[in-house]
Design a protein around this nucleic acid. Structure first.
Length: 443
RNA sequence: GUGGAUGUAGCUCAGUUGGUUAGAGCACCAGGUUGUGGACCUGGGGGUCGUGGGUUCAAGUCCCAUCAUCCACCCCA
């Protein structure tokens, strides 16, 4: 048989056990927070009909969506995010009680060129509230972002918050024409990278007239605390109904966030935040970490008209994506994972020889019945090799039972970290192992 | 999709103006240690120098093409 070169499709990855353990660690923390806030799980198919996906993400999004025809010539695609499939679900099952709080952790696919922290297949963790127009729903989302990142051990991050209506207001009073809003947003969004002068240049390139440019830049330059900037914009937006509406929403949102007692230093009203997706209609949010510079680790906002595309009837909705891949990248770079996260195996039961095998099986069964993650050695190496395996995998405890122990109903427990070894009665084994594991976890 | 850089052992890399048989560290395997890992010592396996073509007496080294990877832009998690 001809050997096939083992290769992997660009932008995709295998997750070996050591990585999976880290990923599960992160996912479990995220899930716990989501459920603590009253969100319930949802999953949707990998493949959707093309009509479900197309036109929801803007022109660029369409281009980056994997698309093909099945054997019956039906146009289908791989999901590009979790929000649109969820909107389809909500429209299909109107009986779901509202407000509907769902979370969803699944891979999505983008036909993008891979880069650092950017893949063609990657996981997203979404939380959304459907059926509430209240800013309280948005506050819940921001609060969940804050708590999730805290629980994961992040300390240096900022949740940037803006409102699409404020950007509409900005466009309106600039006099550039409301149809230029997307162009203006794109230009503004680049501020972080290119600075105010760069934004000026971008606006010019995108055909925004000089007087409109000047007005936009004027407002962008407004400085001060979150409150002060909201106040100043309120005056400037006197002639823009939509702009004022957006500011009022932000005021209410920040008011709620005060009740959640999220420290001010984590929240930033940021006029420069625009976000690319077309479907946002109200508050929008995004989280950035100070280092390493990797782009945003969460992103979301309110999208009150998306569900209407499927049901014919608009349904207020808001939510965020927590970017699992980037979070893991950052946590790895900042060494934020606990030390003893290399394996889920807690004990390796060695096998001395063929005659001692029944005794080893008995030991393993006893430990497993006690709920301890136990590997029983099934290979052909001598003790030396078995210890090597435990060492390579980072298994904390190794149990040894040879002829001497068997005769006296004893077992040897070796703590691989300290190198210390103790001999205990078989009846005491589970307790002794638990004790050592607890000490391990604490240390 | 556009622009730039880089490809030598499983990994990180060295390799002189082109000149014998391409090296190191780590990792791996075996032994020292027939009841015990990590440290140490000894030995060992492993490379069509990304691939294809060209120049040359001679190419890891120079040229062309191609593929792959990385970086930036675009967009985004």
């Amino acid at each position: 048989m001809a050997k096939i070169q083992p290769r992997i499709y660009k932008g995709t990855r295998d997750f070996l056990p050591e990585q999976m353990i880290k990923r599960n660690y992160v996912i479990n923390i995220i899930k716990r927070v989501f459920e603590k806030y009253g969100f319930e799980p949802l999953e949707t198919p990998t493949i959707e009909l093309w009509e479900t996906l197309s036109g929801k993400y803007g022109e660029e999004g369409d281009r980056l969506t994997y698309r093909f025809t099945d054997r019956g010539d039906r146009e289908v695609g791989l999901r590009y995010d979790l929000t649109v499939p969820m909107a389809r679900v909500v429209a299909m099952y109107p009986q779901i009680p509202k407000p509907f709080k769902r979370y969803q952790i699944q891979p999505v696919w983008r036909a993008d060129k891979p880069q650092k922290g950017r893949y063609r297949e990657f996981y997203q963790c979404d939380v959304d509230i459907i059926g509430s127009a209240s800013m309280l729903a948005d506050a819940e989302i921001v609060a969940i972002i804050y708590e999730t990142l805290q629980k994961l051990g992040f300390s240096g991050f900022k949740i940037r918050i803006n409102n699409r209506k404020v950007l509409s207001g900005l466009t309106e009073i600039s006099g550039a024409g409301i149809e230029k809003e997307v162009e203006i947003c794109r230009a503004i969004d680049k501020f972080d990278k290119i600075g105010l002068e760069g934004v000026q240049g971008e606006l010019e390139k995108r055909g925004i007239p000089a007087d409109a440019r000047e007005r936009i830049l004027n407002y962008l330059e407004i400085s001060g605390s979150n409150q002060e900037r909201l106040n100043q914009l309120e005056k400037a937006f006197a002639d823009s109904e939509i702009g004022l509406e957006g500011l009022a929403e932000l005021r209410e949102l920040f008011g709620f966030l005060k009740e959640y007692e999220i420290p001010d230093e984590f929240l930033l009203f940021d006029l420069y935040l625009a976000r690319g997706l077309d479907y946002y209609t109200g508050p929008i949010y995004e989280t950035v970490v100070e280092e390493p510079r990797i782009g945003s680790i969460t992103g979301g906002g309110r999208y009150d008209r998306l569900i209407g595309l499927f049901s014919g009837q608009d349904q207020p909705a808001t939510g965020t994506t927590i970017g699992l891949e980037r979070i893991i990248t950052v946590m790895e770079e900042l060494n934020m994972f606990p030390e003893n996260l290399r394996t889920s195996v807690q004990v390796l039961v060695t096998v001395f020889d063929r005659d001692s095998l029944p005794y080893s099986i008995k030991i393993a069964r006893t430990l497993r019945d006690a709920g301890i993650n136990t590997d029983l050695y099934t290979g052909k190496s001598k003790l030396r090799g078995q210890f090597g395996l435990a060492n390579d995998k980072g298994i904390p405890l190794v149990l040894i039972a040879g002829p001497d122990e068997i005769q006296n109903r004893l077992v040897n427990i070796k703590d691989m970290r300290s190198g210390a070894q103790q001999q205990v009665d078989l009846a005491e084994m589970v307790n002794a192992v638990r004790k050592l594991l607890a000490a391990e976890a604490a240390g």
